[in-house]
Design a protein around this nucleic acid. Structure first.
Lengths: 128, 128
DNA sequence: GCCAGTCACTTGCATTTTACAAGTTACTTT
DNA sequence: AAAGTAACTTGTAAAATGCAAGTGACTGGC
């Protein structure tokens, strides 16, 4: 326990594991970074920021810091001269894979088709 | 296709199913509402707002509108005099169950223990 | 009829987060 | 020395969030 980082503790807003998880990955960007680290071989700041969704650089930097602080991502040099760092998932980060697969599957089944037109499957519409 | 609602279309920021899903459920609150509708028998505005995480009422109202617009939730009267409405998941909403289970499982495995202390599993720490 | 109470929201406003553009630092290549 | 590249940081405007208070429809008791 000695040598712990100075970082502040975080008080969760509830006991619920879902709520807790969402406090960490419940935003529009974090899981996309995890996706790129997990499946798309993107491990540098540059590579991550060039993804199709065009994450703003300040958000990317902040999210990477957070993921590192929570132990989902590791930052390590992959060369000196010039010194450059790469980002990799830890075991804890890699454990998000089934979650990512589920999100992907749901989106694929329910949000496909380019532009969304607001009407559920037949029989599910509000008969206003 | 006649009788479609006037609602605006939505242009997704990328083709990725994960990204698309996150544009809908990628925030701190939406999946908690789905959780309550799916598992906790909460179907009224009142019941939903009384959950442990204390969602602000304006956010709850806005999220319910969004979920309805996207066909994940249905709003229907459960009594007249006074007229009251209940919220229920549609099939599309219920299809989020495996996703919710995965989030719960990850959180349970990696975020348990009340206050978070920032250090990954042994061997995963940045040896700074 | 009048008053208190409940439910389901809406409104106003302060705070926080996000988005976009531009700038900075360190180092390399020409 | 000049130009280029990677990895950020900073500034600022726009949007989302959080909190408190207010509103409207109705009900039930006196």
């Amino acid at each position: 326990m000695a040598g712990r980082q100075p970082a502040e503790d975080h008080a969760f807003r509830s006991e619920c594991s879902i709520s807790r998880s969402l406090e960490l990955v419940g935003d529009k960007w974090t899981l996309l970074i995890v996706r790129d680290l997990m499946w798309h071989g993107k491990h540098t700041f540059q590579a991550l920021q060039e993804s199709a969704e065009r994450i703003p650089t300040n958000i990317l930097a902040e999210r990477l810091r957070r993921l590192i602080r929570w132990g989902l991502v590791r930052r390590e040099p992959y060369q000196d001269r010039p010194l450059r760092h790469a980002y990799h998932l830890t075991d804890r980060g890699r454990a998000l894979e089934p979650l990512l697969l589920q999100i992907m599957q749901w989106g694929h089944a329910h949000l496909d088709g380019g532009l969304y037109t607001p009407s559920g499957p037949a029989g599910e519409r509000d008969p206003s």
